[in-house]
Amino acid sequence: MRPRTEPELSEMIRGATGPVRVRGGGTRVVSQGLGAVLDTTGLGGVQLYEPGALTLVVGAGTPLAEVEALLAGERQRLSFEVPDLRGLLGREGQSTIGGVVATNASGPRRVQSGACRDSLLGLRCVDGTGMIVKNGGRVMKNVTGYDLIKLMAGARGALGVLTEVSLRVQAMPEAEVTLVGERGAKEGLAALRQALGSPYDISGAAFERGRALIRVEGMEGSVRYRADALRRRLGDDWQVREGAESAELWAGVRDVSALWGLDGSIWRLVVKQTEALALVERLGGTAVFDWGGGLIWLALPAGQAEAVRAAVAGVGHATLIRPAPGDEAVPALPPEPAAVAALTAALRRKFDPRGLFAA
Rank of each mutant, 00 (worst) to 15 (best):
A324D: 03
V312N: 06
E8Q: 13
N135M: 13
G114S: 13
A307Q: 09
A229K: 12
V29G: 11
M219E: 14
D352E: 08
V139R: 12
L34N: 08
G26C: 02
V240I: 15
A278E: 09
V126T: 03
E182P: 06
A345S: 15
G157P: 01
L249P: 05
A276Y: 15
A185K: 07
R211K: 14
S95G: 15
A341K: 11
M140Q: 09
E8W: 13
E66C: 05
L159R: 09
V57P: 03
R282P: 02
S203Y: 00
Q32N: 10
A16K: 11
L120V: 03
E81S: 14
R226F: 04
S106W: 02
A53P: 00
P337H: 02
D201A: 15
V340I: 02
E187N: 10
E242Y: 04
A258H: 11
E220A: 15
A72W: 06
A185F: 06
Q170N: 07
D127G: 09
S95K: 10
A345E: 12
A299G: 08
Q273N: 07
L343F: 03
E217D: 11
P7M: 13
A346F: 10
E208I: 15
R226G: 01
R348C: 01
Q32S: 14
M12P: 02
G243T: 14
E336Q: 14
R28I: 01
V67H: 12
R183E: 02
V161Q: 06
T62W: 01
K141E: 07
A60N: 12
D147N: 14
R77G: 01
L213A: 01
S106F: 01
A155L: 06
G160S: 01
Q32E: 15
A244Q: 13
L78T: 04
V169H: 05
R224A: 07
L189V: 05
R233H: 11
G99R: 05
A244C: 05
T17Q: 10
E92T: 15
P173N: 12
S106M: 02
G98R: 09
R241G: 03
Q194V: 07
Q47I: 06
V82Y: 09
P353N: 00
A258K: 05
S119Q: 12
D147M: 12
L64Y: 04
E68P: 08
L320E: 03
T96N: 09
V169A: 05
P3F: 00
Y146A: 03
M1R: 11
A311L: 05
